[in-house]
Design a protein around this nucleic acid. Structure first.
Lengths: 226, 226
DNA sequence: ACACGCATGTGTCCGATGGATACTGTGTGT
DNA sequence: ACACACAGTATCCATCGGACACATGCGTGT
């Protein structure tokens, strides 16, 4: 008699577990941004009380750690080729994942431990630099540099110093502002006045080429005798 | 008779105003980190109720905007020299300010308007690239790239993919982890095993040199025709 | 067959956050 | 002398992460 009318005990309640929670949290963060992620919201999505989550996850930090490792997934296999093309294809894969989960690169910032999947990505990036003759520190720092650049040029949330939108159109408030105070910023005015059409990922491409060219210089130097 | 004993009307209550509030907030953020910054805390430091602040500042976002512009201060004057040395001295100044206010580069991330001082810094950076023959977009993107790199290699809060501390000593938990699972990450293990001494700012220096070399390639290309 | 124990989930409470709103007090201009 | 504008205060609210005490139900040992 317990189960009233023998009704299915609960539609829409997937049985709580760490992966289930993580997936729900990831979906929430993907759709509404990482700031909208609260224990309450995650629990609500799954149809539970927030405190139910704490049975499976010790605190929000742990939830985030799990989310990261689930969301990042497995690194790509780079195939053959020289270090540059292999790096390029690695970074394309990284971009794709970070585009799918825009919050991902930003929650991995502070002092923290990498998860196994995360380490696998770093491992993957390092292998691309295997036969370059770079030292250990240099390899790691190159990888860090590239990760950072991709994160910085992510569409989401890195306007930073850029007075234009994704399509390189100067944003309206800046236009107005420069009309009134343009004389105080001659170089900026001139620069913005002179920009034409540019693809959305021009900044990323430009920076990437700079960095890779710089790496090439060092790698060439390392190859042709210390 | 109102002012009891004609005592100075209030020691330790500097009369509220936007700059006073901003300075207090900056000091708080410098000392306890940006996460410790709340209206309550700022008000408490000054000896007022938190709501008193809202008479002078419309909300926390505006307080942050003011803090940024006050904290960033005036850009340096770069003196003479080629673009590279001028950029270097610009970036040194930027690093110094961001070192003094480690929260500064991180609160300027989302979509937002730059303040006048902030724009002056961008202006300053652009002038360093004045006679390089780079296009407008390229100049802006170069500046963005460099700002981003300095931010990424700031001591505070950018461990990210780096398994070592500031002195390039591999952090303890990673050592332990690689002892147990090192075989899953051969390249990473090898890389970390092989790192020796390196100055704290090696990563920043390395990345900076890469970027500047890459820029040099483009600038040389722009100069010699095309 | 029965009862106990543990895992899982619930309800309630706490301090802190950003912010709205209504109030009080005081200084100044007419 | 009086009214008004403004600076600061007192309350209130929803939301956050999290602690803790409780309910509930299933599996297992006897």
């Amino acid at each position: 008699m317990s189960k009233l009318w023998e009704a299915p005990p609960s539609r829409e309640r997937p049985v709580l577990s760490v992966p289930v929670i993580a997936r729900a949290a990831i979906e929430l963060a993907d759709q509404e941004g990482i700031d909208a992620l609260s224990m309450q919201r995650v629990a609500a999505v799954l149809g539970f009380t927030k405190m139910a989550l704490y049975r499976h996850v010790s605190d929000k930090a742990e939830l985030l750690a799990v989310m990261v490792d689930v969301a990042v997934g497995e690194p790509p296999s780079l195939g053959a080729g020289d270090w540059r093309t292999r790096l390029e294809s690695f970074l394309a894969a990284l971009s794709a994942v970070w585009e799918r989960h825009p919050w991902l690169p930003w929650v991995t910032l502070g002092d923290r431990m990498m998860g196994p999947r995360e380490m696998a990505w770093v491992e993957c990036a390092l292998t691309a630099l295997d036969d370059t003759g770079l030292s250990g520190v240099e390899k790691m720092d190159a990888v860090t540099l590239l990760f950072g650049h991709i994160r910085n040029t992510q569409s989401s949330g890195t306007a930073g110093t850029q007075p234009w939108a994704e399509d390189h159109q100067v944003r309206e408030p800046y236009k107005e502002l420069l009309e009134r105070h343009g004389d105080r910023f001659p170089a900026l005015s001139a620069t913005l006045a002179g920009i034409g059409e540019a693809p959305g990922d021009f900044g990323r491409r430009f920076g990437l080429d700079c960095i890779l060219d710089g790496l090439a210089v060092r790698i060439g130097r390392a190859a042709s005798g210390a």
